[in-house]
């Protein structure tokens, strides 16, 4: 089947898989952001947590994705949750690390100036710390997002529809057309996400740097 024929026949399926991929990506990234920012804040506020959380997250980070997926099957079964949980976990570390180091990079003299002017801790957090760390946190999110877009293709191995399904199809049938379409769209998605978040990062750091 030629390239144009393939698209004509399976076009709807390709769009469906792309949509699935984007949905999986959005859920995984949102979960990684919530967990990463929360843990990063906790790690910064309570230094002792550092020694507890960071090694665990580091080990999970070092683990190959396919191993995480395999390990998750006995616990979470085959399907969406089995696919998502191990993957979003991989997205947590860059966000956690950047959140914690972002907080640590705020000049303590600025915080003292804020206190000296009579700001409450909540006002200091919202008006001084958050704007200062935002570009750094977004940079972490960008790293996670780009990684998640490509890693999500692996979910096809445990039966979850995504652009990985096309790649798997291509490999098993020795057919380069779906292989190229699947990997091409994945790459395009990763590049788009990268540039969107890069723009956001620039916007947030416009005033700070």
């Amino acid at each position: 089947m030629s390239f144009s024929e393939y698209i004509e026949v399976f076009g709807d399926n390709i769009l469906y898989l792309l949509e699935q991929h984007v949905i999986l990506f959005a859920i995984a990234l949102a979960a990684a952001i919530v967990l990463g920012v929360t843990l990063g804040t906790l790690v910064y506020r309570f230094k002792t947590l550092d020694t507890l959380i960071v090694p665990v997250v580091n080990v999970l980070q070092a683990c190959p994705e396919i191993v995480l997926l395999a390990l998750a099957i006995p616990f979470l079964g085959i399907g969406i949750s089995g696919a998502l949980v191990p993957l979003f976990v991989k997205g947590v570390l860059p966000i956690l690390r950047n959140t914690a180091s972002g907080f640590a990079s705020v000049d303590p003299r600025l915080l003292e100036a804020a206190r000296g002017m009579g700001m409450s801790p909540a006002q200091i957090l919202l008006r001084v710390e958050v704007p200062a760390i935002l570009p750094i946190v977004i940079a972490g999110i960008r790293i996670s997002a780009v990684m998640l877009v490509s890693v999500l293709t692996l979910t096809a191995y445990i039966g979850v529809d995504s652009l990985g399904t096309l790649i798997l199809q291509g490999i098993s049938r020795m057919d380069t057309t779906p292989l190229l379409i699947g990997s091409g769209l994945t790459a395009l998605l990763a590049i788009t996400v990268n540039y969107l978040l890069f723009g956001l990062e620039r916007l947030a750091s416009r005033r700070v740097s």
Binding site: R109, L110, G116
Partner: peptide
Amino acid sequence: RRMIGYVIQYVGLFPHM
């Protein structure tokens, strides 16, 4: 504190404001 003006070396200005 709101009755007392506070000036420190120029790092005291908030860079994002």
